[in-house]
Design a protein around this nucleic acid. Sequence first.
DNA 1: AAATTTGGCAACCGCGCTAAC
DNA 2: GGTTAGCGCGGTTGCCAAATT
Length: 307
Amino acid sequence: MGDKGRSLKINKNMEEFTKVEEEMDVRRGPWTVEEDLELINYIASHGEGRWNSLARCAELKRTGKSCRLRWLNYLRPDVRRGNITLEEQLLILELHTRWGNRWSKIAQYLPGRTDNEIKNYWRTRVQKHAKQLKCDVNSQQFKDTMKYLWMPRLVERIQAASIGSVSMSSCVTTSSDQFVINNNNTNNVDNLALMSNPNGYITPDNSSVAVSPVSDLTECQVSSEVWKIGQDENLVDPKMTSPNYMDNSSGLLNGDFTKMQDQSDLNWFENINGMVPNYSDSFWNIGNDEDFWLLQQHQQVHDNGSF
DNA sequence: AAATTTGGCAACCGCGCTAAC
DNA sequence: GGTTAGCGCGGTTGCCAAATT
């Protein structure tokens, strides 16, 4: 019986089903180390897939579904654990504005991150900030906040970090597991769009604006180019590209976070990712005083109808 | 120091889609 | 064409540690 049929059975007679599962001795809840090892060893020798039969053959007292979930979200060797980096945050915000809660699709563009992890990040961090701002996470107001404040702020932080750690002029590496940064296009820095003016008010356009004191980029011009994520379906399947699918040449560090053209635009993120340390949320958390103050300023502007 | 609340995250659930029979 | 099995996705729950009262 498939899951659908099984769920019907649950709906019809939950008690009976629970009894059946108990008789089948199906385990639920947290996985033990022993179970993890059994699953890892089984997959190592037999491969993954066919989860129900895998669960049976491996003599794991778990459903196939549970095995699959455990493997994909936790045990898989390429699962990346730890804090969501600034670059990843930026990418999640951008992609969510485009695709909404399509977590698995978003996860495709964050190598090693699972849809579950991204979903949890969104629910615990992003929705929290929406709540703090007393607005719905799906409201235009919050989307504007992300687009015109949060994301530029993230870019600013990333820039500040990268300038502090690596010369932006040229950094070409030869190792395959390092990212090639060939910054012929200086727009990456120059395009930095900083939407908060010296008064702390937000201007949603990409005209010349002063830079917040946080980063020393006051001479930067805001490029007329926009950050183009572009047409959704134009995006190249990340699986079909090298891990280095983010290209630094697109000039993404500019003000309009509404568009990203194609895969080459996404490449930028990965290059940045290779340049800067992995900062945890403690490095820049939108909940810190300064940023939250800015958010509130933004909200004031929004409430006054300036958008 | 104890009780309560909150936040983060792993795991589960229900549903829908697809392929095989 | 209907049924079943497998899989994947998004939403939700529940546990536990940390923070707060």
